[in-house]
Design a protein around this nucleic acid. Structure first.
Length: 397
DNA sequence: CGTCCACGTCTAC
DNA sequence: TAGACCTGGACGG
């Protein structure tokens, strides 16, 4: 789900599936959801979607019709359009299905007017996602990498002085530019001009070839194409979108393009390290001077990560050749002087693999919640999960 | 069956 | 800056 272009793909999905479809009645929320009720009830309305950064906005637009006056008997009909802004958390996505195929964890549902009606569902297994009726784009969020690129560049420029290391969001791009993920951001970006000299050329074009990379970047001597990091932040997500939403569309079955695009996750020979937040970075070559000191690499070994993501179901084997060709892009191999000054605390956070102290407590509690989970897991489709008294699990740390 | 892991926010020490 | 909030898939025993 989330992260960058996927939210945009979600909006494309909604627009595509709901084009010309008439919805009707109330918007239904699952019992367990803590997000607000959506008090919208209209005899006939349409749904369109748009996205910005990590948010997706659905617009419900009532259709006026003659029989509106008659039918309005008990329920007050909504006649004004309504925007609902969604954030997807870790697992949110939209699905448009028949009524009896509504996915489990469909926490907000829009029903069509047809006789065997269909349902647009906001599905979110982990419920980290949320929505806001009558919502607007969150004003304090950063600019959208895909559609507010220029603004994004300046913001990064302004904030450069306070960035300590390359943000995790950048590491897929670092891979392409051969930037060590734990290089100090200042080193990676210094010399960067706020104006992207390429942007008036062709912002949407594919990844630059080596020859297109400006000399200015090389001047830094460290890594090739450093200054283009930000541009890739923009173009790479657009590449994903240009894959055609394959994967998000249930009809399409070709997942290989996306797999190949990924380039780094769970690829042979790729290294990984966790940062102090417990997030896993994938890279090749030198981790860079700011790498967490003794953070363990998670089981990068044999996790052939099944393509089980809702969006990217019908996955296919990625051919070795594809991967290898993408790997070959690495150009300059340089050695970063290993500094001793590692400022990153080596805190093994959270479920640290290195921390097994209070296992007893932890395990007992986990088991409790597991058991409870089971008892409530037999829900009918449609997100009608009911949960009785849930024992709040608290970690005693 | 149990453990670890996951594309993100929030808020409480 | 640790948890908390959640579910489910992969994997190990």
């Amino acid at each position: 789900m989330p992260e960058g272009p996927e939210l945009h793909l979600a909006s494309l999905y909604v627009n595509k599936m709901c084009e010309g479809v008439v919805f009707s009645g109330p918007v239904v929320k699952s019992e367990v959801s803590k997000s607000p009720d959506v008090s919208f009830n209209c005899e006939s309305y349409r749904i369109t979607a748009s996205s910005r950064g990590k948010e997706v906005k659905l617009t419900l637009t009532p259709i006026k019709s003659d029989d509106d006056g008659k039918r309005r008997s008990k329920v007050t009909q909504t006649d004004q359009p309504m925007d609902i802004v969604f954030r997807f958390g870790m697992s949110g996505y939209f699905r448009f299905t028949s009524e009896d195929e509504v996915p489990k964890h469909g926490h907000l549902r829009f029903y069509t007017k047809e006789k065997p009606c269909r349902v647009l569902s906001f599905v979110d297994a982990r419920r980290f996602g949320s929505w806001q009726p009558n919502g607007t784009w969150q004003p304090d969020r950063g600019p959208c990498i895909m559609f507010e690129y220029k603004s994004f560049r300046s913001v990064i420029g302004l904030q450069l002085t306070i960035i300590l290391k390359i943000d995790r969001r950048f590491f897929p791009f670092c891979l392409r530019l051969n930037i060590p993920p734990f290089l100090c951001a200042r080193d990676a970006l210094e010399g960067l001009e706020l104006e992207d000299e390429f942007e008036n050329k062709k912002p949407l074009k594919k990844e630059p070839t080596k020859t297109e990379i400006p000399d200015r970047a090389k001047m830094k001597g460290k890594t090739q194409g450093m200054g283009d990091l930000l541009r890739l932040c923009h173009t790479v997500p657009l590449e994903v979108v240009s894959l055609g939403g394959k994967g998000y569309d249930p009809e399409k079955v070709d997942y290989s393009a996306f797999q190949a695009w990924l380039q780094c996750y769970y690829v042979d020979g790729m290294k990984s390290v966790r940062d102090h937040n417990g997030r896993t970075m994938w890279f090749k070559g030198d981790p860079g001077p700011m790498a967490p000191k003794d953070s363990k690499s998670p089981k990068a070994k044999k996790r052939a990560k099944k393509g089980d993501d809702h969006d990217y179901t019908a996955k296919k084997k990625v051919t070795k050749s594809v991967m290898e060709s993408t790997m070959k892009r690495r150009a300059v191999k340089k050695e970063m002087p290993k500094k001793e000054t590692v400022h990153v605390k080596d805190t093994v956070s959270k479920k640290g693999n290195a921390e097994k102290k209070q296992e007893g407590i932890q395990q007992r509690k986990t088991r409790e919640s597991t058991r409870e989970r089971k008892s409530s897991s037999a829900q009918p489709p449609g997100g009608r999960e009911t949960r009785s008294g849930r024992a709040t699990r608290k970690n005693s740390k």
